[in-house]
Design a protein around this nucleic acid. Structure first.
Lengths: 333, 333
DNA sequence: TTGTACGCGTTATCAC
DNA sequence: GTGATAACGCGTACAA
């Protein structure tokens, strides 16, 4: 049986309200009683029951974080950004992993709400649209990361995928490449679609005809990247460069290229996207686009806190540009 | 204003107790009233306030998970194992990242307890010994992963580091190598120390004299792995093989080896430990020791649940053997 | 400056 | 089968 505020009050010979006052640093309590109370708190190793406090305050100082896939390579950095910033504001973070299952995600939202979290951060995938609308209607603070708020229903932290796609492709173009392949998650994901748009834009701008054969689609995995690259390598006129819409795909492409005895960047140059941890560890080090995941994680909390402060939904949309990280996987022609 | 149990009771024309009964699937409530209540619950989109429930039940169905470093490469798989298994038991997981700071870890423990979590899982590092003792004294359910419970104070899920160190080294020995270097986190970490023990044991068993120059210490990072390997490479008589006590170290070693124009496994064979995701992506694919992180995560929850069921601490210690994953980084002589 | 009493939403005990 | 009502531990008007 851990001590309660009543125990403290009795032991210190005061009322519970007085104890509560010092607990919450309220004024109007004499120095002496204050010290006496503080002492007995230490003495009994008392710590307020947050559950009871939450019940009366109707807030928990907890924010929920639902990752659609906790094994996503971007998760750790993002999560750390969230945790660090949340802590600054005095919030704890409750994580859920939806396993890419939107039904699970819906459950998580319900659970989080019933636990009276003060806000929710959703990340990665396309969410249940109706759930989001419900949240929005109830003015419940939510922000989503890496998701496109189709009709700006809720506040979003996003990255500028089109610009990034353009950036990566343009770099290859500037390096002298004209036959540039693209491995993409395509229409499966919003981000893949947008990055492809950037890729197309760069080529068009450079007056290079789009060759549909150079664009191959797959899910976001090493295996898929490998298969896609193999198809590219099988082309009669194969590309001299590749822009992969995700580092994981680029890594798969590495496999395919190196397995054929080809060299990177000697024969094929590669640019990825995301700058996941592995990017700087593989050989040759992967030139890719950094998306500042740690910063994004922090920003999402800032935005959520803001969202919690205002009365009604704001539907802000912050989009962050990426930055090219030049390493060793591109050959300058 | 979300609906409460009272609203349901009023609307359905019954008492709160009856509503509570159907909410908790208790017997003794007529089919009709049951259905009527269920209907109004649906109608008002009511969901019980878990905070209030926790307050009276003195349990939260939440387990706390404190990672000493959320960016640890083993974290995602471990975390997923924990989340998945916890969910099976009807528990949610609250994550904390201690940033390798034991002071932060202590805070997290306090916070988790004040939030009335039903148990705590600690992972990776050496914990605050006194905090653990306190938890133990209060019979609060805790299990630690990857930590050595020095005096078996609390239940532990561990891996057999000595056996793993032996396993990795023995494999190299069997492949015909006799001059085997070892990069280790050394005495900095319990696990590093133990794996080194396994390394020494294998060599001794094979009647090979221990050459202290072949054992280099560093922190667990790619950079450190690189530096350590460079020292090994600078030796007048350099090793033909390396056992790294962590894949991250092995990856750093790769850098050093390849930068000198040496080949893996042509000139130097490498065996790592942990089988982190990157291990199968780098070239050559790293032969390493798998530690079944996902399984360990699940096992830790099983153990915690068990711990919560019994009255007093059990201090069970489950140790899991690792398994060699043969890939392409070792040359058979 | 300090104490009393009520409410937060739920479960559980006891009546009826 | 159903309904009052007392907890659970805390914050906060309001009173003293």
């Amino acid at each position: 049986m851990t001590a309660t505020i009543i125990d403290i009050a009795k032991k210190a010979g005061v009322s519970v309200s007085t104890v509560s006052r010092v607990l919450n640093n309220k004024p109007d309590v004499s120095k002496e009683t204050q010290e006496r109370i503080r002492a007995t708190i230490k003495d009994l190793d008392y710590s307020p029951n947050k559950v009871a406090r939450n019940l009366v305050l109707k807030r928990s100082n907890v924010i929920g974080f639902i990752a659609s896939d906790i094994t996503n390579a971007s998760f750790p950095e993002l999560a750390r950004g969230v945790v660090v910033k949340a802590k600054e504001y005095g919030y704890s973070v409750m994580f859920f992993d939806a396993h890419k299952d939107s039904r699970v995600e819906k459950e998580a939202i319900g659970l989080l709400r019933s636990k009276q979290v003060d806000g929710i951060i959703l990340s990665f995938n396309e969410a249940n649209r109706d759930e989001l609308l419900k949240l929005r209607d109830e003015n419940f603070p939510v922000v989503q990361i890496y998701r496109k708020s189709s009709e700006s229903m809720i506040s979003t932290i996003a990255i500028d995928n089109v610009a990034n796609g353009y950036l990566g492709t343009k770099y290859l173009l500037d390096a002298g490449h004209t036959r540039i392949g693209h491995i993409t998650t395509g229409d499966l994901t919003q981000s893949g679609y947008e990055r492809k748009l950037g890729y197309l834009k760069a080529l068009t701008e450079a007056n290079i005809d789009i060759d549909e054969n150079l664009i191959v689609e797959g899910v976001s995995s090493v295996e898929a990247g490998r298969e896609c690259m193999e198809r590219l390598l099988d082309l009669k006129s194969r590309p001299t460069a590749l822009f992969a819409s995700h580092d994981v795909l680029a890594i798969g492409a590495y496999d395919a290229i190196l397995d054929r005895g080809l060299s990177i960047p000697g024969d094929i140059s590669v640019v990825g996207h995301d700058n996941i941890e592995i990017a700087k560890m593989i050989r040759p080090r992967l030139t890719t686009i950094d998306t500042f995941k740690y910063t994004l994680g922090q920003a999402s909390v800032d935005l959520l806190i803001e969202e919690m402060a205002v009365e009604s939904h704001q539907c802000k949309e912050l989009v962050y540009p990426g930055e090219l990280v030049v390493r060793d996987s591109v050959r300058i022609l």
